[in-house]
Design a protein around this nucleic acid. Structure first.
Lengths: 143, 143
DNA sequence: TTTAGTTGATTGCATATGCAATCAACATTA
DNA sequence: TAATGTTGATTGCATATGCAATCAACTAAA
């Protein structure tokens, strides 16, 4: 597998994208019984600890274009797991809010996610994930 | 930014996906003058060292579903950068081949990619990327 | 306060991603 | 060889991704 890439194709983006594909697939396998995608799960987690979040801020947190976020939220709205409210202070802003149905869904999803997360972390030496995160953060930092 | 995620959202998939989004965007910024996407560049690199590759093998190398690969190749075909040939030994197999136009395009792309790659690696300590790759490979390995 | 600039949301367009289902071609077995 | 199984490609469907352009709403400057 790697023989196709090394050494000619040492592209950082390529390796990150490939890994993200493979790992995402495992998490989505785990969440499939609830018909939940990886992004949807993480959005629910982020929302579950706050009253509301502005769309822009959520997009920033996900390192994602606002237009992408905007569309990715739609399935959760359709499903009744989140709601979009307006900000009375600023008519432009859309505030995202998790519903009680969304909280219940998150409860059901949590053990499925935990299994996938344990499987992923189990592949690494102890402490390897924090190390990886440190390296990843250097690649992530905004100039 | 991270405050939205830590410590509640420690999901490995989430962090990989976010990083892959952010880094991919930088590479695609660099390649934009040639109207080349990150995947397209890497596909050309992989093809440039071989006569042909079967679609299935290329998909495997990219850790990508065959149907995804199949569709992702179409813009390169439309552009004349690659060709699809049949395998006389097996009528099912599609062999992918880079064209001379594809090689020329790759030549033009290489310095643009190198700039993005240098920028990415420049964010890390020396030797940090190989370390990262080792950790990433553990997450990647097929059970 | 009008004007000009800025910011947030949305939509069109093009590519990315994977699953399930289907069809065609090859391989195996009865 | 005929029946069965397997493998490769493709398409439908749903979601993911970002850029450019547009519109609406707020803000700052004239």
């Amino acid at each position: 597998m790697d023989d196709l890439f090394e050494p000619e194709n040492s592209c950082v983006a390529l390796h990150l994208r490939r890994l993200s594909r493979v790992v995402t697939r495992r998490y989505e396998d785990a969440l499939r019984p609830l018909n939940l995608k990886s992004f949807q799960f993480s959005a629910l987690v982020a929302l579950s600890r706050r009253e509301t979040i502005a769309q822009t801020n959520l997009a920033k947190a996900f390192g994602m274009d606002v237009s992408t976020l905007n569309r990715n939220l739609k399935p959760l709205v359709a499903r009744g797991a989140i709601e979009i409210a307006s900000n009375p202070k600023d008519g432009r802003v859309r505030l995202i809010k998790i519903t009680s149905a969304g909280l219940k869904l998150l409860d059901q999803a949590m053990p499925l996610w935990e299994a996938a997360q344990a499987e992923a972390l189990g592949r690494l030496e102890p402490e390897a994930w924090p190390d990886l995160r440190r390296g990843m953060n250097k690649l992530l930092d905004t100039d």
